[in-house]
Amino acid sequence: MTINDIKNHLDAEVLCGKEFLDKEVFSACGSDMMSDVLAFVKDQAVLLTGLMNTQVIRTAEMMDMICVVFIRNKKPGEDIIELARESGIAVLSSSKRMYEACGILYSNGLQGQAK
């Protein structure tokens, strides 16, 4: 699944990283607790979260994640977007709720762990 597929599945807006839309993701993680995200390394992953601060982007960067989706229509501030740009991470915003967003991606073939 590419970042562009995620954008389409979640009816999401791309806030930065349009140049990464063709990149492929192999796994996903949905959480508001960053330490839970940090506990399990996944390759080429996307992070879905309702948490809104710069540590979301830093967490994604530490994990070598390539895409963050803010759910429930949350729009991050410019500081968050700027940090994501510097880190080469695509940021999306979707109006879906966490359960729904995860379910849509999962049922379209994006599993929790990369095979």
């Binding site: 508001d32 607790m33 330490s35 839970d36 940090l38 506990a39 948490l51 601060n53 979301v56």
Partner: peptide, 16 residues
């Protein structure tokens, strides 16, 4: 916790 940390995973993750 409202900032996304404090779940009691920090030190265990460092060990992991």
């Amino acid at each position: 916790r409202s900032l996304g940390f404090g779940a009691g995973m920090g030190l265990p993750n460092m060990k992991r």
